[in-house]
């Protein structure tokens, strides 16, 4: 019986506790509403200071207004470019915004540190602070710092960045591709070098390949070699073929033709997609043969590629649209209809 009574008393206590907590929060809300009014007034006062005038004439702001100025700076900086943006950032520096952001890099809240890194990366002369954020304990903050640094010529070496990010264990984001694209702008050879690092995660290599494929034909021979060499990696090989296709370079032709004959349907589909991207006319017959592939994606990519490679492909589709095989006929005639639309 005591246990039953305890249950009742615990439930009452919990109920009262929850209500007291909510009352406190409501009180906090009322106070914060007043603070919000003050912040709005502060924004109205700071906006003209940030948008116009000589930075040398500006005095550093007091603590209370500095955060508002930092928020406002980021909002406006995201909408401006060139000299206008530089002038804005110079005024923000004069007001003391960068000092605040540097302090916030040590905040306990990851959200604050991440915002500080993003904001700081816009200011000239903040390279060391942003580089320091590569050692942050939060992976999102580290990735943000890496993305910011990669846009500058003096970024750390790709291998160092990848190691700091702990790719494969803590970081697997698709944003690694953006990172590699930016790093390759400065040092594409160092990014290509990541493909030969034995212990690096597969995710780094995929990102590096995608980045290199965006540099045109320069790395097509390397990707073609990798495409052939990755037959025992069923997850990786289709991605290499897609990257190879994106280069649009004829150096990949032979590997792509081989890919069309793969036992793995995802590789056949990726190779067919690559044919379309590289306009590989010589692959027309093999693509026609794929129109009765058991997998829809292979049939779709093959028919789409035939449409993209030009007159010979369209002619092959027309022939296939008369086929006795309903699967082939359907794929060809529908793709021709899509082409006409």
């Amino acid at each position: 019986m005591t246990t039953l009574r305890d249950l009742w008393e615990v439930s009452l206590a919990l109920c009262l506790l929850a209500m007291a907590a909510l009352l406190l929060l409501l009180l906090a809300r009322v106070i914060s509403a007043r603070l919000f009014d003050r912040t709005s007034a502060s924004r109205r006062r700071l906006l003209p200071l940030l948008l116009d005038g000589d930075p040398a004439e500006l005095e550093p702001l007091g603590k209370r207004e500095l955060q508002t100025a930092a928020d406002l700076t980021v909002e406006i900086a995201e909408m401006t470019r060139g000299s206008e943006r530089e002038a804005l950032l110079a005024r923000a520096t004069a007001l003391g915004v960068t000092d605040l952001l540097i302090v916030q890099l040590r905040s306990r809240k990851a959200q604050s540190r991440l915002n500080a890194v993003e904001a700081l990366s816009m200011f000239e002369g903040s390279h060391d602070h942003v580089t320091g954020a590569l050692d942050d304990r939060n992976p999102d903050v580290r990735l943000t710092a890496a993305l910011a640094l990669a846009q500058h010529a003096n970024a750390p070496a790709p291998l160092d960045i990848v190691n700091k990010l702990n790719v494969g264990a803590e970081e697997n984001s698709l944003l690694l591709v953006s990172l590699m694209v930016d790093l390759a702008e400065t040092d594409s050879e160092a990014v290509a070098g990541l493909l030969f690092e034995k212990d690096l995660s597969y995710r780094v290599k995929v990102a590096a390949m995608d980045a290199l494929s965006q540099r045109g034909g320069e790395y097509a021979p390397l990707l073609a070699h990798m495409a052939r060499d990755s037959g025992n990696e069923p997850d990786l090989q289709p991605r290499i073929f897609r990257a190879l296709g994106r280069t649009g370079h004829p150096a990949g032709a032979e590997a792509i033709m081989e890919g069309l004959l793969s036992d793995n349907w995802t590789v056949r589909a990726a190779a067919a997609e690559a044919v379309g991207n590289t306009r590989l006319v010589a692959a027309a017959d093999r693509l026609s043969a794929l129109l009765n592939d058991p997998h829809y994606w292979v049939r779709y990519r093959a028919s789409e590629a035939l449409l993209r490679i030009g007159a010979r492909g369209v002619s092959a589709l027309r022939d296939a649209s008369q086929s006795e095989d309903p699967v082939v006929r359907s794929a060809a005639s529908k793709m021709l209809a899509e082409g006409r639309a």
């Binding site: 249950l7 439930s11 929850a18 907590a21 809300r29």
Partner: peptide
């Protein structure tokens, strides 16, 4: 006995109220 009824009311009403309020607290925070 009465404690049985109170325990029943605790699990059906009182804990339910505290749970809903706690969710609102979480939402607000």
């Amino acid at each position: 006995a009465l404690p049985w009824l109170l325990a029943f009311l605790a699990v059906t009403f009182m804990f339910g109220v505290s749970l809903s309020i706690a969710t609102l607290v979480l939402e607000e925070i």
